[in-house]
Measured scan of single mutants.
Amino acid sequence: MSIQHFRVALIPFFAAFCLPVFAHPETLVKVKDAEDQLGARVGYIELDLNSGKILESFRPEERFPMMSTFKVLLCGAVLSRVDAGQEQLGRRIHYSQNDLVEYSPVTEKHLTDGMTVRELCSAAITMSDNTAANLLLTTIGGPKELTAFLHNMGDHVTRLDRWEPELNEAIPNDERDTTMPAAMATTLRKLLTGELLTLASRQQLIDWMEADKVAGPLLRSALPAGWFIADKSGASERGSRGIIAALGPDGKPSRIVVIYTTGSQATMDERNRQIAEIGASLIKHW
């Protein structure tokens, strides 16, 4: 067993022997300050990975656009099909120029040879490739089937209704393509630590998230040396920005953090900075 597999395998073990964890309200002060700075709603939740206990939250049951954070859930659904023998990570999918949508930095380079399901999930999570996400959605039956998968997991909140890039419209009070911080955190925890996926698939999912290449300005920018993070960011219209992450010190994840914001007129750089500052406060008061 590799060191990485050993780390994931021990998560349920540590759950039975973990020391108590305590929240620090200073982080919530920073979350509220971020709302003021951005002139927008901010949703935040911090969940103990082992016990599932909510350590701190702000607007945990308000809806926010999922943006590209849905791609982790999508690849979780794909992996569940792999575990059930209904899909193969090595299966090659061919597509055409007509399938390409905006922001497809990986898939646009493989029009001649296609990409495997594994490569598409990697592109969707690590590079947030939109065409990769659409091709993967097709393999499971579309957005409604992803919503059904989540319902079967016990998540009756999170929903995907449209494809890339339309799902990023982020219209106020529109429940399409939205989640709540509490629902997303719970669902992510189930995918990473529960029995829904095999150990190999849980490890694959967290490996893809750990290799995320487009979330550098967010929580990763505040991460001390030696800390672990596996994450997925998202951005969409109407000043929306978000990130879902499993992180912790000593090279292993111990908490789930979900941050969403929407309705801001601030620049992308400012939205990134506010999320990074929330992360810095979280780490300082860990």
Rank of each mutant, 00 (worst) to 15 (best):
Gly85Trp: 04
Met67Glu: 01
Glu145Ser: 13
Pro181Thr: 01
Cys121Gly: 03
Val257Cys: 04
Ile11Ser: 10
Leu38Ser: 05
Thr179Ala: 06
Ala23Gly: 15
Ala170Val: 13
Lys213Ser: 10
Asn272Leu: 01
His110Val: 02
Leu219Cys: 01
Met127Arg: 08
Thr262Ile: 07
Lys53Ile: 14
Arg159Cys: 02
Ala183Phe: 05
Pro224Tyr: 00
Glu169Ile: 13
Gln88Asp: 12
Arg202Gly: 06
Phe58Val: 04
Ile206Glu: 06
Ser281Glu: 14
Glu119Arg: 03
Asp250Met: 07
Met1Ile: 08
His94Ile: 15
Arg162Cys: 04
Met127Phe: 09
Pro172Asp: 15
Leu197Val: 02
Ser122Asn: 12
Gln88Ile: 12
Thr198Leu: 08
Glu145Arg: 12
Gly251Cys: 07
Val214His: 06
Pro181Ser: 01
Leu223Asn: 00
Leu28Lys: 07
Thr147Met: 05
Leu218Met: 08
Leu219Asn: 01
Val214Cys: 06
Pro25His: 08
Ala16Leu: 15
Met115Ala: 07
Leu28Gln: 07
Arg92Asp: 05
Glu46Gly: 01
Leu196Met: 12
Ser80Phe: 13
Thr178Glu: 00
Ile3Val: 07
Val106Arg: 04
Leu137Val: 04
Ala148Val: 13
Met180Lys: 11
Glu237His: 13
Ala182Thr: 12
Thr261Met: 09
Glu175Leu: 12
Met153Asp: 05
Leu79Cys: 02
Leu247Val: 08
Pro25Ser: 05
Glu62Ala: 06
Leu10Phe: 13
Ala235Glu: 03
Leu10Ile: 13
Thr131Gln: 00
Ala200Val: 11
Ile93Ala: 02
Met268Leu: 13
Ser57Tyr: 07
Phe64Leu: 09
Ala266Tyr: 05
Glu102Asp: 15
Ala225Ile: 11
Pro25Gly: 04
Gln37Lys: 15
Asp99Val: 11
Arg91Val: 02
Gln86Leu: 12
Asp212Cys: 04
Pro65Ser: 05
Arg271Pro: 07
Pro181Gly: 00
Phe149Ile: 08
Ile45Val: 15
Tyr260Glu: 00
Asp36Val: 14
Gln37Glu: 11
Gly251Arg: 08
Leu79Val: 03
Arg255Cys: 00
Ser51Asn: 08
Trp227Phe: 02
Ala9Arg: 08
Met66Thr: 01
Asp269Ser: 12
Gln86Gly: 11
Pro165Gly: 03
Glu166Trp: 08
Arg7Ser: 10
Ala211His: 14
Ala246Gly: 01
Met115Arg: 02
Ala211Arg: 14
Ile278Pro: 00
Leu150Ser: 05
Glu145Gly: 14
Asn173Lys: 10
Gln88Val: 12
Gln204Ser: 09
Phe17Ser: 09
Pro60Thr: 11
Gln86Pro: 02
Ser80Asp: 09
Asp207Glu: 13
Gln86Ser: 14
Ala211Val: 04
Val21Gly: 08
Ser254Ala: 10
His151Thr: 12
Thr179Gly: 00
Met153Ile: 12
Thr131Arg: 00
Leu135Thr: 05
Val257Ala: 02
His151Ala: 12
Glu175Val: 13
Asn168Ile: 04
Tyr260Phe: 12
Glu35Ala: 04
Cys18Tyr: 07
Ala124Ser: 14
His24Met: 07
Arg271Gln: 14
Lys30Ala: 10
Pro172Leu: 10
Ala77Asp: 09
Ala225Cys: 13
Met67Asn: 15
Leu146Gly: 01
Thr187Gly: 04
Asp161Gln: 02
Ser96Cys: 08
Ala225Ser: 09
Asp231Ile: 03
Ile206Gly: 05
Asp177Gly: 01
Pro249Cys: 03
Lys144Val: 12
Asn50Glu: 13
Ala182Gly: 13
Arg255Ala: 01
Gly242Cys: 05
His110Arg: 09
Gln4Ser: 12
His5Tyr: 13
Trp227Cys: 01
Ile3Ala: 12
Glu87Asp: 08
Leu160Ala: 07
Phe228Thr: 03
Gln204Cys: 14
His285Ala: 04
Arg273Leu: 07
Gly114Asp: 14
Ile229Val: 04
Leu19Trp: 14
Glu169His: 11
Thr198Val: 06
Trp208Ile: 01
Ala222Tyr: 06
Leu111Asp: 05
Arg241Gln: 05
Ile283Tyr: 10
Leu55Ala: 02
Thr262Ser: 09
Asp129Glu: 00
Met153Cys: 13
Pro65His: 06
Phe17Ile: 12
Ser240Gln: 06
Asp99Thr: 10
Thr193Leu: 13
Gly90Val: 12
Leu135Ser: 04
Ser68Arg: 00
Leu150Gly: 01
Glu237Val: 14
Pro105Arg: 03
Val21Arg: 01
Leu49Gln: 02
Gln86Trp: 13
Leu74Val: 06
Ala200Ile: 08
Ile244Gly: 00
Arg189His: 13
Arg220Thr: 01
Lys144Met: 10
Ser254Glu: 14
Glu56Ser: 07
Phe13Ile: 09
Thr186Gln: 13
Asp231Phe: 01
Glu169Gln: 14
Trp208Asp: 02
Lys53Thr: 11
Arg118Ile: 07
Lys32Tyr: 05
Ser96Ala: 13
Val8Asp: 15
Lys30Thr: 09
Lys144Thr: 14
Ala200Gln: 15
Asn134Gly: 00
Gly90Tyr: 11
Thr198Ile: 04
Trp286Glu: 00
Glu61Gln: 14
Asn50Ala: 15
Gly90Ala: 14
Lys213Arg: 10
Gly194Thr: 14
Asn168Gln: 06
Ser240Asn: 15
Thr147Tyr: 05
Asp161Glu: 03
Ala222Met: 08
Ser236Tyr: 01
Asn168Thr: 06
Glu175Phe: 09
Val8Ala: 11
Glu164Lys: 08
Pro181Arg: 00
Leu137Gly: 01
Glu166Met: 11
Asp48Asn: 03
Leu19Thr: 10
Glu62Ser: 07
Thr138Arg: 15
Asp99Ser: 10
Ala133Gly: 10
Ala183Leu: 03
Val157Ile: 13
Val82Asp: 02
Ile3Leu: 13
Asn152Ile: 08
Gln97Leu: 14
Val82Glu: 02
Ala183Val: 09
Lys30Gln: 08
Lys53Glu: 13
Glu61Gly: 13
Ala276Gly: 06
Glu61Met: 15
Ala225Pro: 15
Thr107Val: 07
His285Ser: 07
Gly85Val: 04
Ile171Gly: 12
Thr131Leu: 03
Ser254Lys: 09
Leu146Ser: 00
Phe149Ala: 06
Ser57Met: 10
Ala16His: 15
Val214Asn: 06
Gln88Lys: 14
Asn134Gln: 01
Thr262Tyr: 06
Met67Val: 05
His24Lys: 09
Asp174Ser: 04
Glu87Ser: 02
Ser68Ala: 00
Ser201Gly: 09
Ala225His: 14
Phe22Leu: 12
Gly242Tyr: 00
Leu199Asp: 15
Asp83Gly: 02
Leu28Val: 14
Ser51Ile: 01
Thr187Ser: 13
Lys53Asp: 14
Ala280Asp: 12
Arg176Thr: 04
Pro224Gln: 02
Glu270Asp: 09
Lys144Asn: 09
Gly279Ser: 06
Gly194Ala: 10
Lys53Gly: 08
Pro165Gln: 03
Glu145Trp: 06
Gly226Val: 01
Leu89Gly: 03
Gln97His: 13
Leu10Lys: 02
Leu167Arg: 02
Thr178Lys: 01
Asp83Cys: 01
Ala200Asp: 13
Ile275Asn: 00
Lys252Ile: 14
Phe17Met: 10
His151Cys: 05
Thr267Val: 06
Ala200His: 12
Ser221Ile: 07
Ala266Ser: 10
Asp33Val: 11
Leu89Trp: 03
Asp177His: 01
Pro60Gly: 14
Ala40Val: 06
His156Pro: 10
Phe228Ala: 03
Leu167Met: 12
Pro165Leu: 05
Pro143Ala: 02
Ile275Val: 07
Lys32Gly: 05
Gly76Asp: 00
Glu108Val: 13
Ala40Glu: 10
His110Cys: 07
Ile45Phe: 13
Glu145Ala: 13
Leu79Phe: 01
Leu160Cys: 15
Glu145Leu: 09
Asn173Asp: 14
Glu210Val: 14
Ala148Asp: 15
